[in-house]
Design a protein around this nucleic acid. Structure first.
Length: 483
RNA sequence: UCCCCUUUAGCUCAGUUGGUUAGAGCAUCUGACUGUUAAUCAGAGGGUCGUUGGUUCAAGUCCAACAGGGGGAGCCA
């Protein structure tokens, strides 16, 4: 019986010719004791249900409150009012679930994003979050489509990992060892350290911070793989662009160098934007409007130069700017911004790590478009990145997006066993723990490369949401895991 | 973790140099109206001023600590 309903998005695309249909959804507002704005989540547009005067009991009408769920049947006719092309003249209204108006926290008015974060379980029922999460869904779908169409194998890398050598950040421990206040039940070695042999896996384990190392195992068999799954970082990060639990896409390609890698990343990002623009135009236009309304409250110099749609269009039609770390340092050094000493962190010269103000200057002020920075000094990058011929830089790449910062981090991997071992020794990475990783270099090693794209940062970029906590359903951040 | 800002009704916010009974809009409730568009009109209810301590004759207002939220930085995707 329930599958007889028509979704409001589909209905609104039809012409009103008196057809009798059934819809189900939640009440957004009930105006004039007669007009129900009904929403079923398929689109932000509501169906106006008209409850003709005198046709329904007062007792029933009283129960039509904000967010009550209804099953409504009636004829679809051209609207007599101005705001919509069709009305449903209700012949039957059934209340599926009441919603106590005195207790329901959402009102038909603008709410702050901060307040909505505190009621994250209900915020999907707002237009903003409806749009954000429909776009998020589309992007997730497009990721699989992009890689599937290219013949990549979708690989599920483990969530629980025994290696703590990945070096990508602090990890969450996974254990079944007893935890009591005095630690009396915790198994100990003779020297007092915790005996992990007694733990579930017989060793210390953690939540993954990256699927890359396992991804490389797949790439050196299937040729091209990608992962798309949750990732965990136990960093005490309190920013609008970090989460303790987030989703990451990590393609890994054999027979691939840094340039191929950068080409793929750029194509990938553009594909995702194009997909959302083709499939979520209505939601993006709503979000663009929201963003522009929001920015009207900011001082002139803090507003974006482009609207959301223009920005996405611009990224699609322009090549990402590609330059080396060394070139970037030169640009920063020679900039008027630097000469006027406007950087908080001084440009000390080659070898320094770029601060986010430097990255933002390059992306938002100098080039005004996404930038692919390559070939960083080896000393500031990870052990697995391929050492360049100059002996001092590695084949790394970061893609920096306006307003978001680093959206992609990747590299060509060090496929030469001796060079990899040297590098691990230098950086105190225990090669023996990663024996399985080293085996790819021992048996048929091959030039290969890959990158990680932060999914939530991508969703932020496409939706224009400025806080990463507003593009994931239930954000996990330090001191916060309510829902 | 560091720096800055902030916390007053369900929500968004006023609240003067410390001084009677802490206000507004929206929401809610009651009634009216009935082709409305965040409906409108009239009325009503609704507050431990984040928590604890201090200064003072007197604290929403000043001070301190703690907690929550926001912005920026670091770590990174």
């Amino acid at each position: 019986m329930f599958n007889k309903r028509i979704k409001i998005k589909e209905l609104l695309a039809q012409e009103p010719t008196g057809q009798e249909v059934t819809v189900m959804g939640w009440v957004r507002t009930f105006r004039n004791n007669q007009f129900i704005a009904l929403n079923d989540g398929s689109t932000n547009n509501n169906l106006q249900v008209v409850a003709g005067l005198g046709k329904f009991d007062d007792e029933l009408l009283k129960r039509i409150t904000t967010s009550a769920s209804l099953k409504v049947t009636g004829a679809i006719v051209p609207s007599l009012g101005k705001g919509q092309k069709m009305d449903m003249n209700a012949t039957s209204i059934e209340i599926l679930g009441d919603s106590d108006a005195e207790k329901y926290p959402l009102q038909p008015k603008k709410h702050s994003l901060e307040f909505l974060r505190e009621i994250a379980h209900l915020r999907f029922r707002t237009n903003t979050f409806g749009s954000v999460f429909r776009v998020r869904h589309s992007l997730a779908f497009a990721i699989h489509k992009f890689f599937n169409d290219k013949g990549f194998v979708y690989m599920h890398t483990p969530i629980i990992t025994a290696s703590d050598a990945e070096g990508a950040g602090e990890m969450f421990r996974v254990t079944t060892l007893p935890f009591d206040e005095k630690n009396e039940k915790t198994p100990r070695n003779e020297d007092g350290s915790i005996n992990f042999k007694e733990d579930f896996f017989g060793r210390a384990t953690n939540l993954t911070v990256s699927g890359q190392l396992e991804g490389e195992l797949g790439a050196t068999a299937f040729g091209e793989i990608y992962t798309f799954g949750p990732t965990f970082r136990a960093e005490n990060s309190n920013t609008a662009r970090h989460l303790a639990e987030f989703w990451m896409i990590e393609p890994e390609m054999a027979f691939c160098d840094l340039e191929d890698n950068a080409n793929l990343a750029e194509e990938f990002i553009k594909y995702l934007i194009q997909y959302a623009m083709n499939n979520n135009r209505e939601d993006l236009e709503f979000l663009a409007q929201r963003l522009s309304d929001e920015e009207k409250q900011l001082p002139q110099d803090k507003r974006s130069e482009m609207g959301l749609m223009e920005k996405l269009e611009f990224v699609l039609t322009n090549n990402f700017e590609r330059l080396t770390y060394t070139e970037a340092i030169d640009i920063l050094k020679e900039s008027n911004h630097n000469k006027k000493k406007k950087f908080q962190y001084e440009i000390t010269g080659w070898g320094m790590d770029l601060q986010s103000e430097h990255e933002r200057f390059l992306v938002e002020k100098h080039f005004k478009k996404p930038v692919i920075l390559t070939n960083y000094p080896a000393a500031i990058k990870s052990f697995y990145m391929r050492l360049n011929e100059d002996g001092k830089t590695v084949a790394a790449m970061d893609i920096l997006a306006p307003g978001i910062g680093e959206i992609v981090g990747g590299s060509q991997r060090e496929e030469r066993l001796d060079k990899l071992e040297d590098r691990m020794k230098e950086m105190n990475i225990p090669a023996e723990e990663l024996w399985w990783y080293m085996d790819t270099r021992r048996f048929g090693t091959v030039p290969h490369a890959g990158f990680g794209l932060g999914f939530e940062r991508m969703v932020q970029f496409v939706t224009g949401m400025t806080n990463i906590r507003d593009v994931i359903a239930f954000p996990r951040t330090p001191k916060s895991a309510e829902f």
